[in-house]
Nucleic acid binder design. Structure first.
Lengths: 225, 225
DNA sequence: AACCAGTGTTAACGTGTGTTAACCGATTAG
DNA sequence: CTAATCGGTTAACACACGTTAACACTGGTT
Protein backbone atom coordinates (compact mmCIF):
# COMPACT_ATOMS: atom_id res chain seq x y z
CA UNK A 1 0.00 0.00 0.00
CA UNK A 2 1.32 3.44 -0.89
CA UNK A 3 1.69 6.22 1.65
CA UNK A 4 -1.13 8.54 2.58
CA UNK A 5 -0.56 12.01 1.18
CA UNK A 6 -1.15 14.99 3.45
CA UNK A 7 -1.35 18.55 2.20
CA UNK A 8 0.04 20.83 4.90
CA UNK A 9 -0.49 24.58 4.49
CA UNK A 10 1.54 26.55 7.02
CA UNK A 11 3.15 29.92 6.41
CA UNK A 12 5.61 29.80 9.27
CA UNK A 13 8.53 27.90 7.67
CA UNK A 14 10.10 26.59 10.86
CA UNK A 15 6.85 25.21 12.22
CA UNK A 16 5.87 23.83 8.84
CA UNK A 17 9.12 21.97 8.58
CA UNK A 18 8.81 20.46 12.04
CA UNK A 19 5.30 19.21 11.39
CA UNK A 20 6.28 17.87 7.99
CA UNK A 21 9.18 15.91 9.38
CA UNK A 22 7.19 14.56 12.29
CA UNK A 23 4.49 13.33 9.98
CA UNK A 24 7.05 11.79 7.67
CA UNK A 25 8.44 9.72 10.52
CA UNK A 26 4.90 8.36 10.83
CA UNK A 27 5.11 7.28 7.25
CA UNK A 28 2.96 9.95 5.68
CA UNK A 29 3.82 11.72 2.46
CA UNK A 30 3.68 15.46 3.21
CA UNK A 31 3.25 18.34 0.75
CA UNK A 32 4.17 21.57 2.52
CA UNK A 33 2.75 24.80 1.09
CA UNK A 34 3.65 28.28 2.37
CA UNK A 35 0.33 29.95 1.49
CA UNK A 36 -3.27 29.35 0.49
CA UNK A 37 -2.86 29.86 -3.21
CA UNK A 38 0.04 27.47 -3.50
CA UNK A 39 -1.99 25.01 -1.47
CA UNK A 40 -4.89 25.16 -3.88
CA UNK A 41 -2.58 24.52 -6.83
CA UNK A 42 -0.93 21.65 -5.04
CA UNK A 43 -4.30 20.22 -4.10
CA UNK A 44 -5.39 20.22 -7.71
CA UNK A 45 -2.22 18.70 -9.08
CA UNK A 46 -1.48 16.16 -6.34
CA UNK A 47 -4.91 15.26 -4.99
CA UNK A 48 -3.88 14.51 -1.41
CA UNK A 49 -6.07 12.46 0.88
CA UNK A 50 -6.27 14.89 3.78
CA UNK A 51 -5.65 18.60 4.36
CA UNK A 52 -4.04 20.28 7.35
CA UNK A 53 -4.54 24.02 7.00
CA UNK A 54 -3.31 26.89 9.08
CA UNK A 55 -6.17 29.35 9.37
CA UNK A 56 -4.05 32.48 9.27
CA UNK A 57 -2.05 32.50 6.05
CA UNK A 58 -0.97 35.05 3.46
CA UNK A 59 -2.79 35.33 0.09
CA UNK A 60 -5.62 32.98 0.97
CA UNK A 61 -6.59 32.07 4.51
CA UNK A 62 -7.40 28.55 5.60
CA UNK A 63 -11.18 28.99 5.69
CA UNK A 64 -11.39 30.51 2.23
CA UNK A 65 -9.14 27.79 0.92
CA UNK A 66 -11.31 25.16 2.55
CA UNK A 67 -14.41 26.65 0.95
CA UNK A 68 -12.78 26.57 -2.46
CA UNK A 69 -11.70 23.00 -2.06
CA UNK A 70 -15.03 21.92 -0.63
CA UNK A 71 -16.62 23.15 -3.82
CA UNK A 72 -14.55 20.56 -5.65
CA UNK A 73 -14.60 17.75 -3.11
CA UNK A 74 -17.07 17.78 -0.29
CA UNK A 75 -15.75 14.75 1.52
CA UNK A 76 -12.01 15.25 1.88
CA UNK A 77 -11.08 15.58 5.55
CA UNK A 78 -9.76 18.98 6.64
CA UNK A 79 -8.01 19.85 9.89
CA UNK A 80 -7.60 23.51 10.78
CA UNK A 81 -4.75 24.80 12.88
CA UNK A 82 -6.04 27.80 14.80
CA UNK A 83 -4.33 30.36 16.96
CA UNK A 84 -5.78 30.93 20.38
CA UNK A 85 -7.24 34.27 19.32
CA UNK A 86 -9.44 32.82 16.56
CA UNK A 87 -13.10 33.19 17.44
CA UNK A 88 -14.28 29.78 18.46
CA UNK A 89 -17.73 29.95 16.92
CA UNK A 90 -16.39 30.47 13.42
CA UNK A 91 -14.09 27.53 13.86
CA UNK A 92 -16.89 25.44 15.22
CA UNK A 93 -19.08 26.26 12.28
CA UNK A 94 -16.44 24.73 10.10
CA UNK A 95 -15.99 21.63 12.12
CA UNK A 96 -18.74 19.51 10.76
CA UNK A 97 -18.55 16.81 8.17
CA UNK A 98 -14.98 15.93 7.38
CA UNK A 99 -13.54 18.74 9.47
CA UNK A 100 -11.72 19.04 12.75
CA UNK A 101 -9.46 21.61 14.33
CA UNK A 102 -6.51 21.94 16.67
CA UNK A 103 -5.60 24.89 18.80
CA UNK A 104 -2.02 26.05 18.70
CA UNK A 105 0.15 25.08 20.39
CA UNK A 106 -0.52 21.40 19.99
CA UNK A 107 1.52 18.25 20.34
CA UNK A 108 2.35 16.05 17.41
CA UNK A 109 0.46 13.21 19.03
CA UNK A 110 -2.67 15.29 19.02
CA UNK A 111 -2.36 16.06 15.35
CA UNK A 112 -1.68 12.48 14.44
CA UNK A 113 -4.70 11.28 16.38
CA UNK A 114 -6.93 13.71 14.52
CA UNK A 115 -5.46 12.73 11.19
CA UNK A 116 -5.95 9.06 11.83
CA UNK A 117 -9.47 9.58 13.07
CA UNK A 118 -10.55 11.49 10.02
CA UNK A 119 -8.73 9.17 7.67
CA UNK A 120 -10.32 6.21 9.34
CA UNK A 121 -13.75 7.56 8.61
CA UNK A 122 -13.25 7.69 4.89
CA UNK A 123 -10.74 4.95 4.65
CA UNK A 124 -12.17 2.28 6.84
CA UNK A 125 -14.15 0.91 3.96
CA UNK A 126 -11.71 2.14 1.38
CA UNK A 127 -8.63 0.22 2.37
CA UNK A 128 -10.30 -2.92 3.47
CA UNK A 129 -11.30 -4.31 0.14
CA UNK A 130 -13.73 -6.71 1.64
CA UNK A 131 -17.05 -5.00 1.66
CA UNK A 132 -20.33 -6.14 3.00
CA UNK A 133 -23.76 -5.46 1.68
CA UNK A 134 -26.87 -6.97 3.20
CA UNK A 135 -26.23 -10.66 3.79
CA UNK A 136 -23.42 -10.67 1.24
CA UNK A 137 -19.72 -10.28 1.65
CA UNK A 138 -17.93 -8.94 -1.36
CA UNK A 139 -14.25 -9.61 -1.78
CA UNK A 140 -13.31 -7.04 -4.35
CA UNK A 141 -9.74 -8.14 -5.13
CA UNK A 142 -10.86 -11.73 -5.56
CA UNK A 143 -14.07 -10.65 -7.31
CA UNK A 144 -16.06 -13.02 -5.18
CA UNK A 145 -19.49 -12.55 -3.75
CA UNK A 146 -20.20 -14.66 -0.69
CA UNK A 147 -23.62 -15.50 0.64
CA UNK A 148 -23.87 -17.74 3.65
CA UNK A 149 -21.67 -20.61 2.60
CA UNK A 150 -22.08 -20.24 -1.13
CA UNK A 151 -19.83 -18.08 -3.19
CA UNK A 152 -19.98 -16.90 -6.76
CA UNK A 153 -17.24 -15.56 -8.95
CA UNK A 154 -17.83 -12.18 -10.56
CA UNK A 155 -16.24 -10.91 -13.72
CA UNK A 156 -14.02 -7.88 -13.74
CA UNK A 157 -16.73 -5.53 -14.93
CA UNK A 158 -19.31 -6.90 -12.56
CA UNK A 159 -16.92 -6.52 -9.65
CA UNK A 160 -16.01 -2.94 -10.44
CA UNK A 161 -19.57 -1.90 -10.96
CA UNK A 162 -20.64 -3.54 -7.72
CA UNK A 163 -17.71 -1.94 -5.96
CA UNK A 164 -18.86 1.54 -6.87
CA UNK A 165 -22.45 0.75 -6.06
CA UNK A 166 -21.48 -0.41 -2.59
CA UNK A 167 -19.23 2.61 -2.10
CA UNK A 168 -22.20 4.79 -2.82
CA UNK A 169 -24.69 2.65 -0.98
CA UNK A 170 -27.98 4.41 -0.39
CA UNK A 171 -26.96 7.30 -2.59
CA UNK A 172 -27.59 7.76 -6.26
CA UNK A 173 -24.58 6.76 -8.28
CA UNK A 174 -24.38 8.93 -11.36
CA UNK A 175 -24.66 7.04 -14.64
CA UNK A 176 -22.26 9.07 -16.71
CA UNK A 177 -19.77 9.20 -13.87
CA UNK A 178 -19.58 5.45 -13.65
CA UNK A 179 -19.63 5.08 -17.41
CA UNK A 180 -16.65 7.37 -17.70
CA UNK A 181 -14.87 5.62 -14.91
CA UNK A 182 -15.39 2.05 -16.09
CA UNK A 183 -16.00 2.38 -19.82
CA UNK A 184 -14.03 5.54 -20.51
CA UNK A 185 -16.96 7.24 -22.19
CA UNK A 186 -20.69 7.59 -21.77
CA UNK A 187 -21.99 6.99 -25.25
CA UNK A 188 -25.06 5.02 -26.22
CA UNK A 189 -23.41 1.63 -26.51
CA UNK A 190 -21.53 1.81 -23.24
CA UNK A 191 -24.75 2.79 -21.56
CA UNK A 192 -26.49 -0.23 -23.06
CA UNK A 193 -23.64 -2.41 -21.91
CA UNK A 194 -23.90 -1.06 -18.42
CA UNK A 195 -27.61 -1.88 -18.36
CA UNK A 196 -26.71 -5.45 -19.08
CA UNK A 197 -24.31 -5.56 -16.17
CA UNK A 198 -26.83 -4.00 -13.83
CA UNK A 199 -29.20 -6.71 -14.87
CA UNK A 200 -26.59 -9.38 -14.18
CA UNK A 201 -25.79 -7.92 -10.78
CA UNK A 202 -29.44 -7.79 -9.83
CA UNK A 203 -29.74 -11.46 -10.61
CA UNK A 204 -26.66 -12.29 -8.55
CA UNK A 205 -27.84 -10.18 -5.63
CA UNK A 206 -31.38 -11.43 -5.52
CA UNK A 207 -30.67 -14.03 -2.84
CA UNK A 208 -31.02 -11.23 -0.32
CA UNK A 209 -34.32 -9.58 -1.00
CA UNK A 210 -33.63 -6.69 1.33
CA UNK A 211 -31.09 -5.22 -1.03
CA UNK A 212 -31.98 -3.74 -4.37
CA UNK A 213 -30.47 -1.80 -7.18
CA UNK A 214 -32.96 0.96 -7.83
CA UNK A 215 -32.91 2.97 -11.01
CA UNK A 216 -33.32 6.72 -10.84
CA UNK A 217 -34.44 7.63 -14.27
CA UNK A 218 -32.08 10.00 -15.98
CA UNK A 219 -29.57 10.04 -13.13
CA UNK A 220 -28.26 6.65 -12.25
CA UNK A 221 -28.57 3.80 -9.81
CA UNK A 222 -28.96 3.47 -6.09
CA UNK A 223 -28.01 0.38 -4.16
CA UNK A 224 -30.15 0.22 -1.06
CA UNK A 225 -30.32 -2.12 1.90
CA UNK B 1 -35.89 10.93 15.44
CA UNK B 2 -34.86 10.02 18.96
CA UNK B 3 -31.92 11.63 20.71
CA UNK B 4 -28.42 10.27 20.63
CA UNK B 5 -27.45 8.70 23.94
CA UNK B 6 -24.05 9.49 25.42
CA UNK B 7 -22.54 7.59 28.32
CA UNK B 8 -20.44 10.00 30.36
CA UNK B 9 -18.17 8.56 33.03
CA UNK B 10 -16.69 11.24 35.26
CA UNK B 11 -15.99 10.91 38.95
CA UNK B 12 -15.82 14.60 39.77
CA UNK B 13 -19.52 15.39 40.35
CA UNK B 14 -19.37 19.11 39.62
CA UNK B 15 -17.55 18.68 36.31
CA UNK B 16 -19.75 15.74 35.36
CA UNK B 17 -22.85 17.79 35.92
CA UNK B 18 -21.58 20.69 33.86
CA UNK B 19 -20.69 18.49 30.91
CA UNK B 20 -23.97 16.63 31.16
CA UNK B 21 -25.99 19.82 31.09
CA UNK B 22 -24.01 21.31 28.27
CA UNK B 23 -24.52 18.22 26.16
CA UNK B 24 -28.20 18.17 26.99
CA UNK B 25 -28.58 21.69 25.64
CA UNK B 26 -27.21 20.26 22.39
CA UNK B 27 -30.01 17.77 22.43
CA UNK B 28 -28.11 14.71 23.52
CA UNK B 29 -29.38 12.24 26.05
CA UNK B 30 -26.67 11.91 28.72
CA UNK B 31 -26.12 9.07 31.20
CA UNK B 32 -23.73 10.27 33.90
CA UNK B 33 -21.81 7.62 35.85
CA UNK B 34 -19.53 8.36 38.81
CA UNK B 35 -17.16 5.43 38.31
CA UNK B 36 -16.04 2.74 35.90
CA UNK B 37 -18.08 -0.10 37.29
CA UNK B 38 -21.31 1.85 37.22
CA UNK B 39 -20.44 2.87 33.70
CA UNK B 40 -20.06 -0.72 32.57
CA UNK B 41 -23.44 -1.62 34.05
CA UNK B 42 -25.07 1.39 32.47
CA UNK B 43 -23.45 0.56 29.15
CA UNK B 44 -24.89 -2.93 29.23
CA UNK B 45 -28.37 -1.89 30.23
CA UNK B 46 -28.74 1.27 28.15
CA UNK B 47 -26.54 0.61 25.11
CA UNK B 48 -25.54 4.21 24.41
CA UNK B 49 -24.20 5.26 21.03
CA UNK B 50 -20.99 6.90 22.21
CA UNK B 51 -18.83 6.88 25.33
CA UNK B 52 -17.04 9.79 26.98
CA UNK B 53 -14.75 8.39 29.67
CA UNK B 54 -12.57 10.10 32.19
CA UNK B 55 -9.32 8.16 32.38
CA UNK B 56 -8.75 8.59 36.10
CA UNK B 57 -11.71 7.15 37.95
CA UNK B 58 -12.26 5.09 41.09
CA UNK B 59 -12.99 1.34 40.94
CA UNK B 60 -12.27 0.98 37.24
CA UNK B 61 -10.22 3.46 35.23
CA UNK B 62 -11.21 4.65 31.78
CA UNK B 63 -8.74 2.50 29.86
CA UNK B 64 -9.71 -0.71 31.59
CA UNK B 65 -13.35 0.12 31.10
CA UNK B 66 -12.73 0.79 27.44
CA UNK B 67 -10.99 -2.56 27.07
CA UNK B 68 -13.91 -4.35 28.67
CA UNK B 69 -16.43 -2.62 26.47
CA UNK B 70 -14.33 -3.12 23.35
CA UNK B 71 -14.52 -6.84 24.02
CA UNK B 72 -18.28 -6.54 23.61
CA UNK B 73 -18.46 -3.89 20.88
CA UNK B 74 -15.41 -3.05 18.85
CA UNK B 75 -16.93 -0.18 16.91
CA UNK B 76 -18.60 2.09 19.45
CA UNK B 77 -16.83 5.46 19.50
CA UNK B 78 -14.95 6.31 22.70
CA UNK B 79 -13.58 9.69 23.77
CA UNK B 80 -11.14 9.80 26.68
CA UNK B 81 -10.82 12.77 28.97
CA UNK B 82 -7.23 12.91 30.15
CA UNK B 83 -5.45 15.02 32.73
CA UNK B 84 -2.28 16.75 31.62
CA UNK B 85 -0.14 14.31 33.60
CA UNK B 86 -1.36 11.22 31.77
CA UNK B 87 1.42 9.70 29.74
CA UNK B 88 0.69 10.65 26.21
CA UNK B 89 1.92 7.48 24.54
CA UNK B 90 -0.59 5.34 26.40
CA UNK B 91 -3.35 7.64 25.31
CA UNK B 92 -2.10 7.56 21.79
CA UNK B 93 -2.11 3.80 21.75
CA UNK B 94 -5.78 3.94 22.49
CA UNK B 95 -6.67 6.47 19.90
CA UNK B 96 -7.18 4.21 16.97
CA UNK B 97 -10.41 2.85 15.65
CA UNK B 98 -13.37 4.62 17.11
CA UNK B 99 -11.35 6.48 19.71
CA UNK B 100 -10.33 10.05 20.37
CA UNK B 101 -9.20 11.97 23.42
CA UNK B 102 -9.34 15.43 24.95
CA UNK B 103 -6.91 16.99 27.34
CA UNK B 104 -8.34 18.67 30.40
CA UNK B 105 -9.15 21.48 30.57
CA UNK B 106 -11.16 21.56 27.37
CA UNK B 107 -13.97 23.70 26.06
CA UNK B 108 -17.44 22.33 25.46
CA UNK B 109 -17.11 23.20 21.79
CA UNK B 110 -14.11 20.95 21.52
CA UNK B 111 -15.93 18.05 23.07
CA UNK B 112 -18.95 18.53 20.88
CA UNK B 113 -16.84 18.65 17.76
CA UNK B 114 -15.20 15.35 18.68
CA UNK B 115 -18.52 13.76 19.48
CA UNK B 116 -20.08 14.82 16.23
CA UNK B 117 -17.05 13.73 14.27
CA UNK B 118 -17.11 10.25 15.72
CA UNK B 119 -20.86 9.93 15.52
CA UNK B 120 -20.84 11.00 11.94
CA UNK B 121 -18.64 8.08 11.07
CA UNK B 122 -21.11 5.50 12.27
CA UNK B 123 -24.32 7.38 11.94
CA UNK B 124 -24.22 8.81 8.50
CA UNK B 125 -25.91 5.77 7.05
CA UNK B 126 -27.75 4.79 10.17
CA UNK B 127 -30.43 7.46 10.32
CA UNK B 128 -33.02 5.68 8.30
CA UNK B 129 -35.67 7.61 6.51
CA UNK B 130 -38.53 5.29 7.21
CA UNK B 131 -41.62 7.39 7.67
CA UNK B 132 -45.10 6.41 8.57
CA UNK B 133 -48.38 7.87 7.46
CA UNK B 134 -51.73 6.48 8.51
CA UNK B 135 -51.65 2.73 8.10
CA UNK B 136 -48.77 2.98 5.66
CA UNK B 137 -45.07 2.71 6.21
CA UNK B 138 -42.97 4.54 3.70
CA UNK B 139 -39.40 3.50 3.13
CA UNK B 140 -38.03 6.50 1.32
CA UNK B 141 -34.60 5.13 0.36
CA UNK B 142 -36.15 1.98 -1.03
CA UNK B 143 -39.06 3.89 -2.50
CA UNK B 144 -41.48 1.38 -1.06
CA UNK B 145 -44.88 1.95 0.41
CA UNK B 146 -45.99 -0.78 2.80
CA UNK B 147 -49.56 -1.45 3.81
CA UNK B 148 -50.28 -4.37 6.11
CA UNK B 149 -48.37 -7.09 4.37
CA UNK B 150 -48.55 -5.74 0.87
CA UNK B 151 -45.92 -3.46 -0.53
CA UNK B 152 -45.74 -1.38 -3.66
CA UNK B 153 -42.74 0.07 -5.36
CA UNK B 154 -42.85 3.80 -6.06
CA UNK B 155 -40.99 5.60 -8.78
CA UNK B 156 -38.37 8.16 -7.97
CA UNK B 157 -40.67 11.11 -8.55
CA UNK B 158 -43.52 9.58 -6.63
CA UNK B 159 -41.24 8.83 -3.72
CA UNK B 160 -39.81 12.32 -3.53
CA UNK B 161 -43.17 13.96 -3.78
CA UNK B 162 -44.61 11.73 -1.08
CA UNK B 163 -41.56 12.35 1.05
CA UNK B 164 -42.19 16.08 1.07
CA UNK B 165 -45.87 15.64 1.63
CA UNK B 166 -45.24 13.48 4.68
CA UNK B 167 -42.58 15.83 5.98
CA UNK B 168 -45.18 18.59 5.81
CA UNK B 169 -48.04 16.44 7.00
CA UNK B 170 -51.09 18.46 7.98
CA UNK B 171 -49.54 21.64 6.63
CA UNK B 172 -49.94 23.15 3.22
CA UNK B 173 -47.04 22.26 0.99
CA UNK B 174 -46.42 25.12 -1.41
CA UNK B 175 -46.82 24.24 -5.08
CA UNK B 176 -44.04 26.33 -6.51
CA UNK B 177 -41.69 25.34 -3.73
CA UNK B 178 -42.04 21.67 -4.48
CA UNK B 179 -41.95 22.29 -8.22
CA UNK B 180 -38.66 24.10 -7.91
CA UNK B 181 -37.28 21.43 -5.67
CA UNK B 182 -38.23 18.40 -7.73
CA UNK B 183 -38.62 19.77 -11.25
CA UNK B 184 -36.18 22.67 -11.08
CA UNK B 185 -38.76 25.17 -12.26
CA UNK B 186 -42.42 25.96 -11.79
CA UNK B 187 -43.65 26.48 -15.30
CA UNK B 188 -46.93 25.31 -16.77
CA UNK B 189 -45.77 21.90 -17.95
CA UNK B 190 -44.05 20.93 -14.73
CA UNK B 191 -47.15 21.94 -12.85
CA UNK B 192 -49.26 19.70 -15.07
CA UNK B 193 -46.79 16.89 -14.55
CA UNK B 194 -47.02 17.32 -10.83
CA UNK B 195 -50.80 17.10 -10.98
CA UNK B 196 -50.43 13.74 -12.62
CA UNK B 197 -48.19 12.52 -9.83
CA UNK B 198 -50.54 13.77 -7.18
CA UNK B 199 -53.22 11.82 -8.91
CA UNK B 200 -51.05 8.70 -8.93
CA UNK B 201 -50.20 9.08 -5.26
CA UNK B 202 -53.85 9.49 -4.35
CA UNK B 203 -54.58 6.22 -6.06
CA UNK B 204 -51.74 4.46 -4.28
CA UNK B 205 -52.75 5.86 -0.92
CA UNK B 206 -56.43 5.12 -1.16
CA UNK B 207 -56.17 1.83 0.76
CA UNK B 208 -56.25 3.89 3.92
CA UNK B 209 -59.27 6.14 3.66
CA UNK B 210 -58.29 8.20 6.67
CA UNK B 211 -55.49 9.88 4.81
CA UNK B 212 -56.01 12.26 1.94
CA UNK B 213 -54.10 14.66 -0.22
CA UNK B 214 -56.16 17.83 -0.17
CA UNK B 215 -55.69 20.59 -2.69
CA UNK B 216 -55.55 24.15 -1.47
CA UNK B 217 -56.44 26.12 -4.54
CA UNK B 218 -53.72 28.51 -5.55
CA UNK B 219 -51.33 27.43 -2.80
CA UNK B 220 -50.57 23.76 -2.87
CA UNK B 221 -51.37 20.44 -1.28
CA UNK B 222 -51.92 19.22 2.22
CA UNK B 223 -51.55 15.61 3.30
CA UNK B 224 -53.88 14.97 6.20
CA UNK B 225 -54.56 12.00 8.44
C1' DA C 1 -4.42 -24.40 -36.72
C1' DA C 2 -8.78 -25.68 -34.63
C1' DC C 3 -11.16 -25.59 -30.64
C1' DC C 4 -13.03 -23.99 -26.41
C1' DA C 5 -14.45 -21.32 -22.34
C1' DG C 6 -15.00 -17.03 -20.56
C1' DT C 7 -15.99 -12.22 -20.99
C1' DG C 8 -17.83 -8.16 -22.71
C1' DT C 9 -20.51 -5.85 -26.56
C1' DT C 10 -24.23 -5.31 -29.71
C1' DA C 11 -28.83 -6.24 -31.17
C1' DA C 12 -33.64 -6.88 -30.68
C1' DC C 13 -37.54 -6.61 -28.30
C1' DG C 14 -40.15 -5.59 -24.18
C1' DT C 15 -41.35 -2.76 -20.03
C1' DG C 16 -41.47 1.32 -17.04
C1' DT C 17 -41.35 6.17 -16.19
C1' DG C 18 -42.18 10.88 -16.81
C1' DT C 19 -44.14 14.41 -19.89
C1' DT C 20 -47.56 16.28 -22.71
C1' DA C 21 -52.13 16.55 -24.43
C1' DA C 22 -56.98 16.36 -24.20
C1' DC C 23 -61.02 16.67 -21.89
C1' DC C 24 -63.46 17.38 -17.83
C1' DG C 25 -65.40 19.37 -13.45
C1' DA C 26 -64.95 22.73 -9.78
C1' DT C 27 -64.15 27.30 -8.17
C1' DT C 28 -64.00 32.08 -8.44
C1' DA C 29 -63.82 36.88 -10.47
C1' DG C 30 -66.28 40.09 -13.11
C1' DC D 1 -74.51 34.02 -15.23
C1' DT D 2 -70.53 33.53 -17.71
C1' DA D 3 -65.87 33.30 -18.62
C1' DA D 4 -61.52 32.48 -17.00
C1' DT D 5 -58.67 29.82 -14.23
C1' DC D 6 -57.17 26.00 -11.59
C1' DG D 7 -56.80 21.41 -10.75
C1' DG D 8 -58.21 16.04 -11.71
C1' DT D 9 -58.00 12.27 -14.54
C1' DT D 10 -56.97 9.44 -18.31
C1' DA D 11 -54.53 8.33 -22.20
C1' DA D 12 -50.98 8.93 -25.81
C1' DC D 13 -46.38 9.46 -26.36
C1' DA D 14 -41.24 9.54 -26.27
C1' DC D 15 -37.59 7.74 -24.47
C1' DA D 16 -34.81 5.59 -20.56
C1' DC D 17 -34.03 1.32 -19.00
C1' DG D 18 -34.51 -4.22 -18.58
C1' DT D 19 -33.76 -8.65 -20.37
C1' DT D 20 -32.36 -12.16 -23.26
C1' DA D 21 -29.75 -13.89 -26.71
C1' DA D 22 -26.59 -13.61 -30.49
C1' DC D 23 -22.19 -12.11 -31.56
C1' DA D 24 -17.16 -10.96 -31.34
C1' DC D 25 -13.05 -11.01 -29.08
C1' DT D 26 -9.49 -12.85 -26.02
C1' DG D 27 -6.37 -16.08 -24.22
C1' DG D 28 -5.52 -20.68 -23.27
C1' DT D 29 -5.50 -25.76 -24.67
C1' DT D 30 -4.89 -29.57 -27.57
Amino acid sequence: MSKTTILLAEDEPALGQIIKESLETRDFHVLLCPDGEKALETYQSQSPEILVLDVMMPKKDGFTLAKDIRAIDDTIPIIFLTAKSQTQDVVEGFTIGGNDYLKKPFSMEELIVRINNLLHRTKVQKTSDILSIGAFTFDFPKQQLHFENESQQLTHREAHLLFHLIKNKNQVLDRSLILNKLWGNDDFFSARSMDVFISKLRKKLQKDETIQIINVRGYGYKLVN
